[in-house]
């Protein structure tokens, strides 16, 4: 079962380098139009791999509302 904790991207500061895409074990994250990373909320299990890898530290794992 998917947990309620999800990854959230601060799109304003995302540099769209793709580090998060590379480390996501379930391919739930992608770069939208080369401008920012987008998390597929239904897929995300909140493991935090992307947050750890993000060089700009703009991904946060938070409780989803």
């Amino acid at each position: 079962m998917a947990s309620k904790r999800k990854a959230f991207v601060d799109k304003k500061h995302c540099v769209s380098c793709g580090c998060c895409v590379k480390v996501c074990p379930i391919s739930a994250i992608s770069i939208y139009c080369g401008v920012f990373a987008v998390v597929e909320s239904q897929k995300c299990v909140g493991c935090g791999m992307c947050a750890k890898a993000c060089p700009a530290s703009v991904i946060e794992i938070k409780e989803a509302q």
Partner: peptide, 26 residues
């Protein structure tokens, strides 16, 4: 972080800007 260079890489900033202008509608 290992890829901190990506945050201020001039090529990255440039290509992101190009993408933002090119895909502004989307």
């Amino acid at each position: 972080k290992p890829r901190s260079w990506c945050v201020y890489c001039p090529m990255g900033t440039m290509t992101q800007t190009v993408c933002a202008i090119r895909n502004r509608g989307k």
